[in-house]
Design a protein around this nucleic acid. Structure first.
Length: 268
DNA sequence: AATCCTTGCAACCGCGTTATA
DNA sequence: CTATAACGCGGTTGCAAGGAT
């Protein structure tokens, strides 16, 4: 019953791969394809388990892998998708061609998470930390506003990703200055975080949607979604535009622009 | 120069999901 | 439908390299 027995792990090599092993694996897969990972090591003459071979191929040997420093746009995509998907690295990797989930996970844990912390943003919730905001402006109302911004941004991205698996990437490509405050480690100040949220992101994303997608988003928006439900506009000193209310489907793009401009004024 | 500490990343491990008999 | 093994994913570890003391 079931599949054939699992690999016998006795006598199998572990640890770093040698160039010779890499060559054997590469040569075999180029000629035959990987087929069953379980059966591959014996056929390729490797003293490894199939799992180890698969990992080595996917994360290192595959020809369509881009290695080296992450670009600004890639960083933006990771940050935004992490806000949306959490630690679903394979999901995030699907939006970053030629990058592996393992590489993205490592990059997040060693670079981006620290950077967000340094900016006063909780990397888990992606919401501004209260004390950081308070110290920057001294106004608790501003903290509430930024929290609202973070929630809106997160929810917007979720809607966008739901509408199209590639939309987030396209969106990021169109916003080449987004997240400058995150990228430049030497100038992480609160007003830059505000700029990160503000820079054309929301209304441009809405503008780029076709009407079908936009109405789909609005239908979803009016539903009983957990994130949207907590998105009542927090600050009286903003225009009355409210993204969390289904009645906002009548809001014009101009109102959206005003909304973000108001936020910039608050945080700059 | 030697030692300790920190950082980055490749690779492993465990577990949930999927496929198969 | 059930049992079982393979697959795939995310968390974690271990080690090499570089920096600090």
């Amino acid at each position: 019953m079931g599949r054939s027995p699992c690999c016998d792990k006795v006598g199998l090599k572990k640890g770093p791969w040698t160039p010779e092993e890499d060559q054997k694996l590469l040569a075999y897969i180029e000629q035959h394809g990987h087929g069953s990972w379980r059966a591959l090591p014996a056929k390729a003459g490797l003293q490894r388990c199939g799992k180890s071979c698969r990992l080595r191929w996917i994360n290192y040997l595959r020809p369509d892998i881009k290695r080296g420093k992450f670009s600004l746009q890639e960083e933006q995509t990771i940050i935004q998708l992490h806000a949306l998907l959490g630690n679903r690295w394979s999901g995030i990797a699907a939006h970053l061609p030629k990058r592996t989930d393992n590489e993205i996970k490592n990059y997040w844990n060693t670079h981006l998470k620290k950077r967000l912390n340094k900016m006063g943003i909780d990397p888990v919730t992606q919401k501004p930390k209260t004390n950081a905001l308070g110290s920057a402006t001294g106004n608790p109302k501003d903290a509430a506003t930024l929290s609202h911004m973070a929630q809106w941004e997160s929810a917007r991205l979720e809607a966008e990703a739901r509408l199209s698996p590639t939309s987030t990437l396209n969106f990021v490509e169109n916003t080449n200055t987004l997240a400058n405050g995150l990228i430049n480690e030497n100038s992480m100040e609160l007003h830059e975080m505000g700029a990160w949220f503000r820079q054309d992101s929301s209304y441009r994303a809405v503008e780029n949607m076709n009407m079908e997608d936009y109405s789909d988003m609005m239908v979803w928006e009016s539903g009983d979604h957990q994130q949207w439900s907590s998105m009542a506009a927090p600050a009286e000193n903003l225009n009355e535009t409210s993204y969390g209310n289904s009645s906002s489907s009548s809001s014009s793009l101009e109102e959206n622009r005003n909304y973000w401009n108001n936020i910039l004024n608050l945080v700059s």
